[in-house]
């Protein structure tokens, strides 16, 4: 039980690292502490901790996305979120984590958990999507409606974006039974 709680705390700690740097530096430690406080309370009162963990993780992931969107809206996006490959990679991870959790929770065979190639592709596709999207958003922010200045480049980017989105959605639909724990899925 203690081992599981430590694992959950470590997972939450890792999750907090997905917040923007300024947020993490200012409030990250307090968030960890508060999460520990709630875990201790649940343990002492012997309340079900599973529902709390799921809701807290979902709520925190929502918060992470909100904070990144806020940065984007404040115009600090280029400085804070898309300066390198790291942020797209982290955001890409947010698209995979819920399905990893679903598979862990629903699977009956613990040895079959974490199909690394599958989750790798599911992470890579949204990451590439964001990397392609960055210059489009940057042009839009800088030049207003002058996106059509280079229509061929824009068209190619949009085709790639649609293709990636389609691949990701197809993969998701194909693998959804496995995430939901349907026996003998592949």
């Amino acid at each position: 039980m203690i081992h599981e709680q430590n694992m959950v705390r470590n997972l939450y700690k890792k999750l907090i690292t997905l917040y923007p740097q300024t947020f993490r530096d200012e409030l990250g430690e307090s968030m960890e502490q508060t999460f520990d406080d709630i875990c201790n309370e649940k343990r002492q009162t012997k309340q079900g901790i599973f529902g709390f963990i799921v809701s807290t993780f979902v709520e925190t992931i929502t918060g992470i996305i909100q904070e990144h969107i806020l940065l984007l809206n404040q115009g600090d996006a280029m400085k804070n979120i898309f300066t390198n490959f790291r942020s797209p990679a982290l955001i890409g991870l947010l698209f995979v984590v819920p399905f990893m959790i679903m598979e862990v929770v629903n699977t009956q065979n613990i040895n079959a958990v974490f199909n690394v190639p599958l989750f790798g592709i599911m992470w890579l596709l949204p990451t590439i999507f964001i990397v392609i999207l960055i210059p489009i958003v940057r042009n839009l922010r800088r030049a207003g409606n002058s996106l059509m200045a280079n229509p061929v480049s824009l068209l190619i980017s949009v085709i790639f974006l649609v293709l990636i989105a389609w691949m990701w959605a197809s993969l998701l639909m194909d693998q959804m039974p496995c995430f939901l724990g349907v026996p003998n899925c592949d």
Binding site: E26, L27, M31, T34, E59, T60, G63, I64, Q66
Partner: peptide, 14 residues
């Protein structure tokens, strides 16, 4: 209120 909502709000309040 979960930690995500609480600290998101606290950040903006600060």
């Amino acid at each position: 209120m979960g930690p995500g909502t609480l600290y998101g709000s606290l950040k903006r309040m600060l």
